[in-house]
Write a protein that binds this DNA or RNA. Structure first.
Lengths: 203, 203
DNA sequence: TTTGTCAAACCGACCGGTCTGTCTGTATTT
DNA sequence: AAATACAGACAGACCGGTCGGTTTGACAAA
């Protein structure tokens, strides 16, 4: 069975529909009934694929990470300079990730879930926290290499800058989740790229 | 009856305990039973003060805003320069607001609620969205006046900078809600203040 | 001071409905 | 025939909210 066929299997459909619903309504407020309605399945069918809602959570998170990488890292390696790769990620984040209503109609699912579950279901939210740390490290990696290659000024603290960029991305996601305003998101990312350009060597 | 006495009344206690619970578990996942247990009241007592859970929501939000102003704007007017007032707000945000586990044990309640309710109960989340807009405008006001007074460079876009600062604050709140890491929060705000100093006239 | 009155506050059993998860039975596939 | 997938009735816990009854405290009449 190839991957395309798997995508149409029941299990895959449950995961992709649950991903949408989780991004809209979160984990606890998405009922199994909601998922059954979206997938046109029945209880028996669902519990034949997942032994519990929490097991579904893990599968959904894994799929969400796959989509995240797919969208945010697209074409990044086509850029030559490290700083341009970072800018490409920001542009991807804006155009291919946050605005991707097919996968995430309710906005960034990682934020929705982490905010909901942090004080309530730590065993689930720790999976999210790890992802956030990896993402920040990913950003810092580009900055560190950019600094090594002299693309950004040598007096710049990559640690400080990555903190700012990462927090800004999170903040922009929160705002976009509320307003769904493309223009506001564009302003937000523009300000961030403007900030990045202010630390480049030529600036 | 003075304000101090009112604070101990049942209605006030319901609101303050609900504020804590909402910051921890959100709106839908805080049950009336949770609130009754925290206040040692009964159903009948509760519904004698609020005709519905949504009416409680509005009261809690109003109290949350009061505490927000109290903590974040404390001593701000003691600073002479506008840019220092802004820095004072950031320091308050870090020391007196986010770390204020008495009022907000689960972190910033506005973020918890807005992320939960944005796609689910728009009539409630719009109250939150308005507050976010006002906060961003508040920050931009300090920057605009700082620019007028020559405290920051004339080539700086106050609009861009306020976008970055506001998004960073939101992002920092999301992270702190997850990790409850004081040191991470300190690094975050430090990077932000560092950013502010980079646009000052002397820099 | 004592008593009667009344409204607000409080109590908790109860209601209809929804939640996750189970179980029995049936259809499809191999 | 055996294994797998689907269907949906059902269970038990919990949800927000209602309601009849009880307690409390302020105040007026005696």
């Amino acid at each position: 069975m190839n991957n395309e066929a798997r995508k149409n299997s029941s299990g895959e459909k449950i995961v992709s529909e649950s991903l949408k619903l989780f991004s809209l309504k979160g984990f606890n407020n998405t009922s199994i009934s909601d998922i059954l309605a979206a997938t046109k399945m029945s209880k028996g069918g669902f519990y034949n694929h997942f032994k519990s809602k929490e097991e579904l959570f893990t599968a959904v998170l894994s799929e969400a990470r796959r989509v995240w990488r797919l969208q945010n890292l697209a074409d990044v390696d086509k850029e030559d300079r490290e700083i341009d790769r970072l800018k490409k990620i920001l542009a991807n984040f804006r155009d291919r990730y946050l605005k991707d209503a097919v996968h995430f109609p309710g906005g960034c699912v990682f934020i929705t879930l982490s905010v909901e579950l942090d004080d309530q279901m730590p065993h689930l939210s720790s999976q999210l926290s790890d992802g956030f740390k990896r993402t920040k490290a990913l950003l810092k990696g580009y900055l560190d290499r950019a600094k090594e290659k002299g693309e950004i000024r040598s007096d710049v603290s990559t640690s400080h800058v990555s903190e700012v960029i990462f927090s800004c991305i999170l903040g922009a996601s929160v705002v976009y989740g509320m307003d769904k305003s493309d223009s506001q998101l564009d302003r937000n990312i523009k300000a961030l790229i403007h900030y990045l350009e202010s630390i480049e060597s030529g600036a």
